[in-house]
Design a protein around this nucleic acid. Structure first.
Lengths: 305, 305
DNA sequence: GAAATAAATTGAAAAAAACTATCAATGTTG
DNA sequence: CAACATTGATAGTTTTTTTCAATTTATTTC
């Protein structure tokens, strides 16, 4: 089996057609070149180089080998380049997993600055239901998660990033829409819509309903905040929407109004999670810095953690 | 710089995700695998494998490297395959140089049998003017020539293959066409056409003209035997055509007739030539056998050498 | 908490690759 | 034509790399 070094010798010799000069270019002695090439020929059981008294010729088989070898050496260089790109912080591929309640609302605010200061970074964003994310992190599908906390899983490091308020959302013509600030007892008996199972938000909303005596609608579970808010706009019920989404997606045209809940603030904590065994923790910290900056700039009322 | 063996280790580990089992498959001890992979990571300055207590994961950069490495290993296998094909006699590429006076007339008779018994052979046929062929052989453009002898050049081995008769050719309505066998003195004063300079045939025809007192036409030199015979058919003059061409290309429709010359037979010797330093002499001998067989079968009157 | 398993570490041995020195064969030149 | 230069091959040694057996560390399982 020919080694890469031997193939490198061969290609250089093919280029120069001169043992001594090729050896010099390669930074080895001429006997090294001779013996290594001979050894490769022996192993392949084949003459690759025709040593003429006047000149060095490459046999047809040798030509073919040179061709393949050239590709292999280029590949080796590429491995090196990949490594080089991946070595610098936030270089190379970073696989980010997050729920759809965060992804489309936060990432657009984050990516321009991130790409500008770390052009080498290739972010693979994959959305999934929060319930699946920790497992996917453990099996190596994601490198880091941006999810509502808490997240439970072995060998995972959790870093809170910011606190996202939740708002009560209802149709424009809903009776409660007149109130500027809604109290907990206003919610009693209200029909509350929420996301499908697997979403952390769903569990949280269920808990709130339990607390305030609202009725969780069991006949409807939205797959995205957009469908959810459309249902709300149609007057099917009320819901709780996370601040990131509210700021971005609810406007005069949306047909819904949002109100905050008086008393104890309603919120959820968004955090980053990664495998303890991952060697790129400092990169994740760096990524978190960008998230915080984006939140601070676009949502000044949110609390950073 | 990662070595091929290290890359092989990495790909196998990526496949099995288990050090001990991968080591076993690779036929090395587990420490070998561990240290080699570690060493590669150090050299790349990068973590390729995430060693978790429960499982082995490949980092994104590692995935990329595995991808490239897989291609490289496939390439190495291909080198091996190329060598294997080239090892057997008349396997791999063999670059054959010959003049246009031989190529289209001889090769079609030769190739079917050759291909049948040596399917691994890839024959690169390249036609050129005989004058250029020896030089091209020396510089490694061709591996073996099939040309009219003699050929002069240093470090060249010559092997006569067969003797090809030359015929006198003229238009059907030419006065000499009535004669069954043409004598040398019939040619005196005839206008003789021939090939362009650089063809051995051209020199030979010039010598014959000198001998018999014919006039070599200086205002026309054909680039191929086909154009030459077309000129002859039009009555521009007579010419000398080699036997291989005559048997194949002159028929009732061609408008020319061929006659042999009485007395001393007119012929040229076709031989094989290769570099003395070439290691494939036995393959060339084998090729010659096929040429002789093709000639014997299709031109029983030709003399084998 | 002992046994089992998995990968890392250590230190020695084996294998591979590299070097220096030298040779034989050619080619060049005064 | 003889002295000299050049080219690639060979021999013997040294250095570097790779590998292995034995052991250690950490973790999981029973």
């Amino acid at each position: 089996m020919p080694s890469l070094r031997q193939l490198e010798y061969l290609t250089e010799l093919a280029r120069q057609r001169h043992f001594r000069r090729a050896a010099e270019t390669l930074g080895v002695s001429q006997p090294t070149l001779s013996t290594q090439l001979k050894s490769m020929e022996d192993r392949l059981g084949l003459e690759l180089i025709e040593r003429n008294r006047t000149s060095v010729l490459i046999t047809p088989a040798g030509q073919k080998v040179v061709e393949i070898a050239t590709r292999m050496l280029r590949d080796r260089q590429e491995i090196f380049d990949v490594a080089k790109a991946a070595r610098r912080p936030l270089g190379g591929v970073l696989r980010l997993g997050l729920p759809s309640t965060i992804g489309p609302n936060l990432l657009p605010l984050l990516l321009p600055a991130l790409h500008k200061s770390h052009p080498g970074l290739v972010l693979h964003v994959r959305e999934d239901v929060p319930r699946n994310l920790p497992g996917a992190l453990a099996t190596g599908i994601h490198d880091v998660l941006l999810v509502p906390l808490p997240v439970n899983g072995p060998d995972q490091v959790t870093q809170p990033v910011f606190r996202e308020p939740l708002f009560v959302a209802m149709a424009e013509d809903h009776p409660l829409a007149a109130t500027r600030e809604i109290s907990r007892k206003d919610l009693k008996g209200q029909k509350v819509l929420t996301l499908e199972h697997g979403h952390q938000l769903q569990e949280q909303v269920a808990a709130i309903c339990e607390e305030v005596g609202a009725d969780l609608a069991f006949d409807f579970e939205g797959t995205s905040l957009d469908t959810l808010s459309q249902m709300v706009a149609m007057g099917t019920g009320i819901t709780f929407l996370p601040g990131l989404y509210v700021e971005r997606a609810t406007s005069a045209q949306s047909g819904i109004v949002v109100r905050s809940l008086s008393g104890r603030t309603l919120s959820r904590t968004i955090g980053a999670v990664w495998r303890e065994s991952s060697a790129r923790a400092d990169e994740y910290e760096l990524l978190i810095k960008f998230v915080r900056a984006a939140v601070a700039e676009n949502f000044p009322t949110f609390m950073l953690l």
